[in-house]
C-alpha cells in the first residue's frame, strides 16, 4: 500500500531540486552575461527570478503541510532543512538578478581596462553552488563539509578585487560609475558563495543531525 507521507516527502525533495537547478542556471547565466557583456542574457535572468520566488512559496507550503503530520527523525530534518535551503536558493536567485542588472548596465558602456581576478572568483562561487547542491542530492555529508572552508578564499578574493577597484576609481575618476557596478557585482558573488556555504551546513545537519553553523564563533568562545 502506498505510503502517502513518503510520497509527500519525495515530492518536497523533487520540488527543492527543481528550484535548485533554476537557481544554479540563474547564477551561471548572470556570470556569463557579466563576462561576455550579453544584454539579452542579462534580461532573461531578471525575468526568471519570479519563478524562483514562486518556488520558495510553494516549498514552504508543502513543508508546513508535512509538518502538520508530525514527521520524525530524518523526515523531520528533511522538512526543516528544505525550508532553509529554499530560502538560501531564493537569495541566490536574488543575487544572480543583481549581477544580471549590473551586467545589463555594464554592457551598455565601454569596458573598463582593468585586470581582475573576477573569473576565478566567479568560478569558485559557481562550483560551491554546484557542489552544495550535489551533496544534497547524494546526501554526501563529507562533500558538504569540504565546501565550508572554501568560502574564506572567496571572501579574500572579494576583498582583493574591491581594493583593486577602489584604487582604479581614485586613479581614473571617469570610471567610477562603472567600477561601482563591478563592486556591487563582486559583492553579490561573495554573497552567493555564503549562501552556498549555508546550504552545505544544512546538508550536514540533514545527514548527521549535527548543527555546524557559526562554528567559528563557537571555536572562539
Amino acid at each position: 500500500m502506498e505510503n502517502h507521507f513518503e510520497t509527500g516527502i519525495q515530492a518536497l525533495r523533487q520540488r527543492l531540486l527543481l528550484m535548485a537547478s533554476h537557481a544554479e542556471t540563474a547564477v551561471n547565466r548572470s556570470v556569463q552575461a557579466l563576462m561576455e557583456r550579453d544584454y539579452e542574457l542579462a534580461l532573461q535572468v531578471r525575468s526568471d527570478d519570479s519563478a524562483i520566488d514562486q518556488f520558495e512559496i510553494e516549498i514552504d507550503e508543502m513543508a508546513i503541510n508535512l509538518l502538520t503530520r508530525a514527521p520524525l527523525a530524518s523526515n523531520l530534518r528533511l522538512v526543516t532543512v528544505a525550508m532553509k535551503i529554499s530560502q538560501n536558493l531564493e537569495r541566490i536567485g536574488d543575487e544572480a538578478t543583481k549581477i544580471a542588472k549590473r551586467a545589463r548596465d555594464l554592457s551598455q558602456e565601454p569596458p573598463v581596462k582593468i585586470h581582475l581576478e573576477l573569473p576565478h572568483m566567479a568560478g569558485m562561487a559557481l562550483s560551491m553552488v554546484k557542489d552544495s547542491l550535489d551533496s544534497f542530492v547524494h546526501r554526501d555529508s563529507a562533500a558538504a563539509r569540504a565546501i565550508i572552508p572554501r568560502d574564506k578564499a572567496v571572501d579574500e578574493l572579494n576583498r582583493q578585487i574591491h581594493q583593486q577597484l577602489a584604487q582604479h576609481m581614485m586613479a581614473q575618476p571617469d570610471t567610477i560609475a562603472r567600477c561601482l557596478h563591478w563592486i556591487v557585482a563582486t559583492k553579490s558573488l561573495e554573497r552567493i558563495a555564503d549562501h552556498a556555504k549555508n546550504i552545505a551546513e544544512e546538508v550536514v545537519y540533514l545527514c548527521e543531525a549535527q548543527d555546524i553553523r557559526h562554528a567559528a564563533m563557537k571555536a572562539a568562545t
Binding site: 514527521p71 520524525l72 527523525a73 523526515n75 530534518r77 548527521e208 543531525a209
Partner: peptide
C-alpha cells in the same frame, strides 16, 4: 530527531 539504529529510524518514520 536522529536515532542511532536503522530499525528505530524506520519505525519512527
Amino acid at each position: 530527531t536522529n536515532p542511532a539504529k536503522r530499525q528505530t529510524e524506520d519505525y519512527v518514520t
